[in-house]
C-alpha cells in the first residue's frame, strides 16, 4: 500500500505540478507565494497519501488545498517565509516584465484573475476553474467578462 501510494504521489507531482503552480500564481499574483503554496499543497498530499482516494482526480484535491492554504497563509501562518521576490534565474528584463504583468493583473480580484488566466491561457473549462475557485459556473463567466473589461480601461 505504501509503495503504491508513493508511486501515485510521485505521479501526481510530475503530472500536476504545473497546473497547481499556475493556478496558485493566478490566484495569488505572487511568484514566491505560488511556489511556496504549491510545495505546501504537495506536503499535505504526502502526509495524507495513505488516506486520499487515488482513484479520483487528485488535481482537484491539490487545487482546493492550495487555495485554502493561501487563504490562511497570511492570517494564521505568518511563519511561512517568502524565499525570494522573484525567480532567481531571471534577468532584469524578465523581472521588470513580470512586475508589469503583475501590476496590471493586480487590478483584478482573485476570482477574476484566476478565471481569466486559466480559461483563456491554460484552456481550462469554466467548470474546472469554478470547482477550484469554489464558485459557480455562471459567476465565473461573469468574472471573466469583468476581468476583460477592467484590463482594457
Amino acid at each position: 500500500m505504501t509503495a503504491a501510494a508513493d508511486g501515485s504521489y510521485r505521479q501526481a507531482y510530475e503530472r500536476h505540478w504545473d497546473d497547481v503552480f499556475r493556478f496558485l500564481l493566478a490566484w495569488t499574483n505572487d511568484w514566491s507565494a505560488a511556489e511556496d503554496l504549491t510545495q505546501e499543497a504537495y506536503v499535505r498530499l504526502w502526509r495524507n497519501r495513505e488516506r486520499v482516494d487515488w482513484d479520483r482526480p487528485i488535481v482537484a484535491w491539490l487545487l482546493v488545498t492550495g487555495r485554502r492554504l493561501a487563504a490562511s497563509r497570511y492570517q494564521r501562518l505568518r511563519r511561512v517565509v517568502h524565499a525570494t521576490h522573484f525567480d532567481e534565474s531571471w534577468d532584469e528584463a524578465a523581472r521588470i516584465r513580470w512586475m508589469d504583468v503583475r501590476q496590471s493583473l493586480g487590478r483584478l480580484t482573485k476570482t477574476e484573475r484566476t478565471a481569466l488566466l486559466l480559461t483563456a491561457v491554460e484552456g481550462w473549462s469554466y467548470a474546472e476553474v469554478a470547482q477550484a475557485v469554489g464558485t459557480s459556473d455562471g459567476a465565473l463567466r461573469a468574472a471573466v467578462s469583468r476581468a476583460r473589461a477592467k484590463l482594457e480601461v
Binding site: R10, E14, W17, Q39, A94
Partner: peptide, 23 residues
C-alpha cells in the same frame, strides 16, 4: 491590452520549472 497581458503571463508562468523531486 487584455491579450497582451495574457501573452505575457503565459510566457512567464510557463517558464516556471518544477523541482526535480517532490517534497
Amino acid at each position: 491590452r487584455t491579450n497582451r497581458a495574457l501573452d505575457e503571463w503565459r510566457a512567464i508562468a510557463h517558464s516556471a520549472r518544477r523541482p526535480a523531486d517532490p517534497p
